[in-house]
């Protein structure tokens, strides 16, 4: 009887801990959305529910920022970066998983070590290279230097090593080349892993701040810089700033709503190893 009571007490404690934590996590997001739907004259009224609702802030954002262009540019960067990383790292992981070759360990370490090298050490000379190539202020300048992801190689290699060797051997006996084997045997079997990895890469690229801020100095390029410009220019027009921030989060949040489990799993797995 008493053990049942303690276990119920324990469950209640867990629930209240988690409820508090959830509240802390969600409140700023809620406040962003709530503030963005307030009428401009109600902004400083701190009631928890915004009422009456208004889309005036959004109208102002659409009037002063090229929202569609910003979101479009960001989308292009995020999709192309994620797709490029996926293909390049898939090939590399395949090499590490399917062959024993001279220099394998050293080359693998060369990939892993990039995780340790801070971006700030390489930024100056990469900046100069882009400027020599005339790629500053272009979307390509944001994408190209980020096409290899150590994380993707690590995760894909892990998945491929768990892949049954017999299937590879069978394909080989069929006389299929390694290139055909990769696309007809390995990739179809890795589909769930590739899907969750591509979500992770897409979200990371969408939320990337540092490199786009350096390469694209114009505020009207990607959504992150658009808001930053807006924040400096409009200063205390919080309703509009919150509306713009909400728009910047919208695609990722929408993806999260639909594929919540895959998103969390991908992130958590990237943090486990």
């Amino acid at each position: 009887m008493s053990s049942m009571r303690t276990s119920r007490l324990r469950a209640a404690t867990s629930h209240s801990m988690l409820a508090l934590l959830s509240l802390i996590s969600v409140f700023p997001v809620y406040w962003m959305i709530a503030s963005s739907f307030r009428r401009p004259q109600d902004l400083y009224d701190q009631s928890l529910l915004p009422w009456p609702l208004s889309v005036g802030n959004y109208r102002q954002v659409f009037d002063s920022l090229d929202v569609v262009g910003l979101l479009g540019n960001t989308l292009v960067i995020a999709v192309v970066t994620a797709a490029g990383q996926l293909v390049i790292c898939l090939l590399a992981a395949y090499a590490f998983a399917a062959w024993d070759f001279r220099g394998r360990t050293v080359l693998f370490m060369a990939f892993v070590a990039t995780w340790l090298i801070p971006f700030q050490v390489t930024m100056i000379s990469n900046y100069l290279v882009l400027s020599n190539l005339g790629l500053l202020n272009t979307l390509a300048g944001v994408i190209v230097p980020n096409l290899c992801s150590a994380l993707a190689v690590l995760m894909l290699r892990q998945h491929m090593q768990a892949f049954p060797r017999e299937l590879l051997d069978a394909a080989r006996i069929d006389g299929r080349g390694s290139w055909t084997t990769l696309w007809t045997v390995v990739v179809p079997n890795l589909r769930p892993a590739l899907a969750s990895l591509s979500i992770l890469l897409f979200i990371s690229a969408w939320n990337e701040y540092f490199w786009p801020a350096l390469v694209l100095q114009r505020a009207n390029s990607v959504v992150q810089l658009g808001i930053r410009g807006f924040l400096t220019a409009e200063g205390d027009d919080w309703g509009a700033v919150m509306a713009a921030s909400g728009l910047a989060c919208l695609p990722v949040f929408a993806l999260y709503l639909v594929m919540q489990r895959q998103v969390i799993d991908a992130f958590v797995r990237s943090g486990l190893r």
Partner: peptide, 8 residues
Amino acid sequence: PMLMAPVA
């Protein structure tokens, strides 16, 4: 919070 864009 982890998914929110840093600028936002």
